[in-house]
């Protein structure tokens, strides 16, 4: 396994440089929006770290799928997988290596974002407002972080199974949006059956429920349907798909 090679091969392209610059601008912008402007909007005049991180999850919900799908499926789309597999013919080893490299990028991105959220919350609360609130940090860990982890897992599964940048991005970004919308419609309809179907596919809600310790066996269903099954199918496809 060579995750260092996969990291470098992703980072040294012009597309990745543009993506990372745009991502940085978005993360800094949303962190500033959440942390610095919050005191002016909140009745108490405080800045709450949980609220700042909530703001940050908006761009991260787009950035994480884009980076993840590009890192796992990008080489299939631009055909450079041919050279990769000629130099590293162990296909499952290459796949594992890419997953590791993607996870490292995710961890760095999330750590940077949370650090930035804490900094802007402190600046906004202590220097510009009536105080910074950090006591809600467990909410960050039980609510926002699981949501981001769910986004990573689903994006990985889509990248692995679809092996196409376009299809992977459409699925990884579009499916959660469709499921959330379907959830709202199901609630409006009041149908238990439709609600259960949507719940069985709502990975993000299931992730938050499980992280809060309130999960049941049913909450594992989205993980099975949206992550485990596509990943297993994708690993099989990765191992046998012909190149060229």
């Amino acid at each position: 396994m060579r995750p260092d090679i996969d990291l470098r091969s992703f980072l040294d392209t012009r597309g990745a440089a543009i993506l990372l610059i745009l991502s940085l601008i978005a993360v800094v912008g949303f962190a500033a929006l959440g942390g610095l402007i919050q005191p002016a909007l909140m009745p108490e005049g405080t800045s709450d770290v949980s609220f700042t991180v909530f703001f940050l999850t908006l761009p991260l919900s787009l950035i994480i799928p884009v980076i993840t799908v590009l890192m796992t499926a990008g080489e299939w789309s631009d055909q450079s997988i041919q050279n990769t597999l000629l130099q590293r013919p162990g296909r499952l080893s290459v796949l594992t290596s890419k997953v590791l490299a993607t996870t490292v990028v995710f961890l760095v991105l999330v750590a940077f974002s949370f650090g930035l959220a804490a900094a802007t919350t402190w600046i906004g609360g202590e220097l510009m407002g009536e105080g910074a609130v950090f006591s809600t940090f467990d909410e960050v860990l039980t609510s926002h972080l699981p949501l981001l982890v769910a986004t990573l897992l689903f994006s990985l599964a889509m990248g692995i199974v679809l092996q196409s940048t376009v299809l992977g991005l459409v699925a990884a970004i579009g499916a959660p949006f469709v499921i959330t919308t379907a959830g709202v419609i199901a609630m409006a309809l009041g149908s238990d059956l439709v609600s259960d179907i949507v719940r069985a596919l709502d990975l993000q809600t299931a992730a938050m429920t499980l992280a809060a310790g309130d999960g049941t066996a049913f909450d594992l269903l989205p993980l099975l349907l949206l992550v485990i099954v596509p990943t297993v199918v994708g690993i099989r496809r990765w191992a046998v798909r012909e190149v060229g």
């Binding site: 392209t13 012009r14 597309g15 631009d78 450079s80 041919q82 050279n83 000629l86 060229g244």
Partner: peptide
């Protein structure tokens, strides 16, 4: 095998 398999962004 295929010169097009080289990444264009590098």
């Amino acid at each position: 095998l295929d010169a097009r398999a080289l990444h264009g962004g590098r």
